[in-house]
Design a protein around this nucleic acid. Structure first.
Length: 443
RNA sequence: GUGGAUGUAGCUCAGUUGGUUAGAGCACCGGUUUGUGGUACCGGGGGUCGCGGGUUCAAGUCCCGUCUUCCACCCCA
């Protein structure tokens, strides 16, 4: 047993894990670029203050923070949004809008680990800033769905649960909560899925609800409403002041607009209105959503929403924003669970088989020539038996084996073997690179 | 941070009421095989049984501590 182990919650990436990781990253990257997002990155180490400014002092308990040798209070980043806010805030006036940025980076949280939650993980973040219209929400949700599909997931294996903190805020307001109390009530609603009803009711009472039981009932009923029509009917029948009702119904018009965009994009099978989602974070200001796996153990794969006030709060110019974050750990676990991990990501194109030292030199020269053409060409280093070399050719995943034996050398040819079909043909040594390239492109 | 479970080869796991030198399959390396494939056969390397302490003539096995991983809380940016 090795004396030194990885720290709890940290991972070694052996070549197989690493190529899988790169594959996940590439899919995220390619999908983002198709949507016209640009990649950015920031430092892994940030000032502690940047984080507490966004999330409060409580967050320090979950940070890898320390004092550096210059006496600065610093922390490994637990998320990317504060960095993004700083970067965008600093150049807000110079950036063409909308700002569509994505990033893939390592983040650190000092927490007791569990399956799907490590202390170091990679997160894919995508945000649109400077665009307050629902098209930005729709595009971000679309990118989220397409990313998951491109990773190999299908409709029915995950769903994006869509909710709205604005609608909730107006609803809570109509029940008599204002300001701080309303924010507290949103926190209670966020936890209702996991907390017994009596506790929620007690919490509402503490926040000043006049009739906690009736308030809880109203909230519970509202949470279950499955679509815009039903929500509208519910609000119309509810006993409400005219102004409150107008606000709520006006917000439903925004919902219709968003949904019509999502439907036009062909995403309706991936979207589910679910008002149980509130998301605990106080800084969300509008639509919020979660990508949720619907197979196996239900887990959140990604989460996001609109946060129109955050950039300004962190010292930048006012700038509307919407985005999401998705971790590599739960995604990997899910792909493994549904057996959708890509096989043989890391395979050779050409394997050169030779017999004898002269043949080795010739093969080596050809290997370099093929490599210079962009192919992955490999050969055995020790001159093992031909049988063994063919085994290695097979396990390398190469499409073709090139055979360099005494017969071939004497005749000035190379035997090219198509590994899948087993068919062989002879190619003049002088035309080898061109011929092999042509064959390889045909598959 | 709290509570519970777990740990034997790289992986999945056997290992009797405590009793000689701790096993298997897969994987890896070599051979059968210096001209044709992931099969087959033969062989090999690899373990201070998570770590530390205790009980005992004797501990992989029993006891205590500790660490790891997993589960439920907490939290979930």
């Amino acid at each position: 047993m090795a004396t030194y182990k990885t720290l709890p919650g940290f991972r070694d990436f052996y070549p197989e894990d690493c190529s899988l990781r790169n594959h996940l990253f590439n899919v995220w990257r390619q999908t983002s670029k198709r949507f016209g997002f640009q990649e950015y990155d920031g430092p892994v180490l940030e000032s502690l203050e940047l984080l507490t400014a966004k999330s409060g002092e409580e967050i320090v308990g979950q940070l890898f923070n320390f004092e550096d040798k210059g006496g600065r209070q610093v922390t490994l980043r637990p998320e990317l949004t504060p960095t993004l806010a700083r970067m965008v805030g600093a150049k807000a006036n110079a950036l063409p809008r909308p700002v569509k940025w994505f990033s893939i980076g390592e983040n650190f949280r000092y927490e007791r680990q569990q399956k799907g939650r490590l202390r170091s993980f990679y997160q894919f973040n995508a945000d649109i800033l400077g665009e307050s219209g629902v098209i930005a929400d729709a595009e971000v949700i679309g990118l989220l769905v397409e990313s998951l599909c491109n990773q190999g997931l299908r409709a029915g294996e995950f769903v994006v649960r869509l909710s709205d903190r604005n609608l909730w805020y107006y609803f809570i307001e109509s029940l008599g909560f204002t300001g701080e109390q309303a924010m507290g009530a949103l926190g209670v609603i966020d936890k209702m899925e996991r907390v017994p009803a009596e506790k929620s009711q007690a919490a509402l009472a503490e926040l000043g609800a006049k009739d906690p039981a009736a308030t809880l009932k109203a909230i519970s009923d509202f949470q279950e409403l499955p679509d815009v029509c039903t929500i509208k009917a519910y609000l119309t029948n509810m006993d409400l002041e005219e102004s409150a009702r107008d606000k709520l119904l006006a917000r439903l018009d925004v919902w219709r607009e968003l949904l019509s965009l999502l439907i036009a994009a062909g995403l309706e099978n991936f979207i589910k209105i679910d008002l149980r989602i509130v998301r605990g974070l106080a800084y969300y200001t509008g639509f919020v959503f979660e990508a949720f796996q619907t197979v196996g153990k239900g887990r959140a794969l990604a989460g996001g929403g609109r946060y129109d006030d955050l950039i300004e709060k962190l010292g930048g110019a006012p700038m509307p924003a919407v985005g999401f974050g998705m971790g590599d750990v739960t995604l990997r676990d899910l792909l493994e669970e549904v057996d959708r991990l890509p096989k043989l990501i890391d395979k050779a194109d050409i394997y050169l088989v030779y017999s004898g030292d002269d043949a080795f030199k010739t093969a080596l020269a050809d290997a370099y020539a093929l490599r210079r053409q962009g192919l992955r060409a490999e050969l055995n280093y020790k001159g093992a038996g031909m049988g063994k070399q063919f085994k290695q050719a097979a396990s390398s995943g190469a499409d073709f084996a090139l055979v360099y034996g005494p017969d071939e050398l004497a005749k000035g040819i190379v035997t090219v073997k198509h590994m899948r079909s087993g068919e062989q043909q002879e190619v003049p040594a002088t035309q080898l690179v061109g011929s092999v390239l042509a064959l390889w492109r045909e598959g």
